[in-house]
Design a binder for these strands. Structure first.
Lengths: 297, 297
DNA sequence: TCATGCTCATAACCTGGAGGAATGAGCACC
DNA sequence: GGTGCTCATTCCTCCAGGTTATGAGCATGA
């Protein structure tokens, strides 16, 4: 398994065109960087860099690998921003609470963007379920919250910042991948599904949508405690599930999961920012709302 | 910067519910895992795991971080699969050539998916421009290729596997983020843009689309040699650019870049699999085509 | 009640590998 | 041919991460 410093080094060499300057950027000496890069090339058994006597250029392979590496590093960046926000949630200048879906997939990006505009700003993030988020906003423990509709309380101001959608997904080997007709609400309600436990936001949205389509509740084939557990079960072939497209976007685009069309049922749900009504958001909170709002819809 | 082994360990602890078993999975001893995890927690200054005397559970924070970590590891997985394919391209059982856009964003996922179905299969990947891909397919050096339309030669069989779209993107601070009306082709042609060099697929698609809308060629504000260089320049505020949505998907969803609407110009381009005509693809090549085909459209 | 089995933490020790400093060597430009 | 840039090699140091050995806390069952 490669290490992140080496990947960063590769990207920097590509950007700066010189091993020595890349080393400086990382705060190590040139020989150390030289060795690191050789080690990475040995590990991947690929020639990534074309070393000339005046500068280094990426080889075609190096170019591609460097791009893949950048994607890795972007995710790491999100993790670090998120972690910083999590640990700062007590004494931050801007305190935010978010439900799981938002926290997992969107919050690190938004916070990262906000901090790019104001590097000195400390943002605190607290992750709970939508109900607790509402409580935290009411009690003033946080400045603003992000939740999934339905069930936005009337005593809070809110604004829709994005629209999520639940998708029916199956493994590529599942018979549903070969069907031409979309799945009907009745069929969905009658099919045993891999689901989250009752009370989770995703499960609740599904049940409401089924009820709105005049169908009975979902038949649980397997009840699991986290979205990723459900995802793994579906990939392993356990059966169909209904999951947020935010959670399975890469699985879909890379073919690990396949979306099955549905009709006659509305599986969208709005993601909303909420804050104490009457008040107008100011300062960092307003900035965050603006960032969240323009990225989503 | 955290290291990937530690992130993997965290994910495994969440899945297996026990530090010792997670250690076994990684091929290290339990004390080593214990130390690693403590180090990670110290580094992030977060309590990630709730250690009881019979098993370990993730804390709420641990849960979120573990999900972020999984995203990182997924990207690493893509990098490793891609690297394996790159180095195997000479003597692989299935040899594939792909243009940059496909190789960067889609190929690792497809190949990974294929290898999940047939773990013993060696897949070779070669990355060049669309013209070379066509040559490699013609000469039989590769079994199949992936290119961007336009310019699919008539002597090859092809199938559209996905549709890419170029988007006009600007930094969040750019005045275009506040405009209400979409950009017209004339306006786009008249505005200095950050672009790739002439001859690149992206540039070519843009020029063709402008020509189809009866406009002159794009005005280069800055010409750069790689998509990521263009992306960085735009984020830094250099000016608008026209980039593949595949390349900027995360930037858009996380608010680093903002898409500006356009009208009267068709910036879509099909991504196609190509192979020697007359022949029907069989075996692994057919499987790969199926995977690519179902993920895309 | 006490042994057993599971969990995780701590301590002491070893070693491989990463980093630093110094040096050499190739190419370009003046 | 000097000068300045590049990168590779060598040698040395040192610490991070591994292992083994051990202890402690909580359940379960005899």
């Amino acid at each position: 398994m490669p290490d992140l410093e080496s990947l960063r080094l590769l990207v920097l060499v590509g950007e700066l065109g010189s091993l020595g300057r890349a080393a400086g950027e990382l705060g190590i000496t040139q020989p150390a960087a030289s060795k690191r890069l050789s080690a990475l090339e040995r590990q991947l058994r690929l020639v990534l860099v074309d070393r000339t006597r005046r500068g280094s250029r990426l080889t075609p392979a190096g170019h591609v690998v460097s791009d893949w590496a950048r994607r890795v590093l972007d995710e790491v960046d999100g993790l670090l921003t998120g972690a910083a926000a999590l640990r700062a949630h007590r004494d931050a200048e801007l305190r935010v609470a978010a439900s799981m879906t938002v926290a997992e997939h969107l919050a690190p990006g938004w916070i990262g963007e906000l901090r790019r505009a104001e590097p000195a700003l400390y943002v605190g993030l607290q992750v709970t379920n939508s109900t607790s988020v509402v409580e935290l906003v009411r009690s003033g423990e946080v400045d603003m919250g992000f939740i999934e509709s339905p069930s936005i309380p009337t005593d809070l101001a809110y604004r829709r910042v994005a629209v999520d959608r639940l998708a029916v997904v199956v493994a590529p080997t599942h018979p549903w991948t070969r069907r031409r007709r979309p799945v009907s609400p009745e069929e969905l309600a009658a099919t045993p599904l891999v689901v989250r436990e009752s009370g989770s936001g995703t499960r609740e949205t599904l049940e409401r949508a089924l009820a709105a389509a005049r169908c009975g509740p979902a038949q649980p084939l397997l009840e699991l405690g986290s979205t990723t557990a459900v995802r793994s079960a579906v990939i392993a072939g356990a059966g169909p599930a209904v999951l947020s497209v935010l959670a399975v976007a890469t699985d879909l685009s890379e073919g690990r999961l396949v979306e099955v069309g549905v009709e006659g049922i509305d599986l969208r749900r709005a993601l909303c920012a909420v804050w104490p009504s009457g008040r107008r958001l100011v300062g960092p909170a307003a900035a965050l709302l603006a960032i969240a709002g323009r990225a989503g819809p």
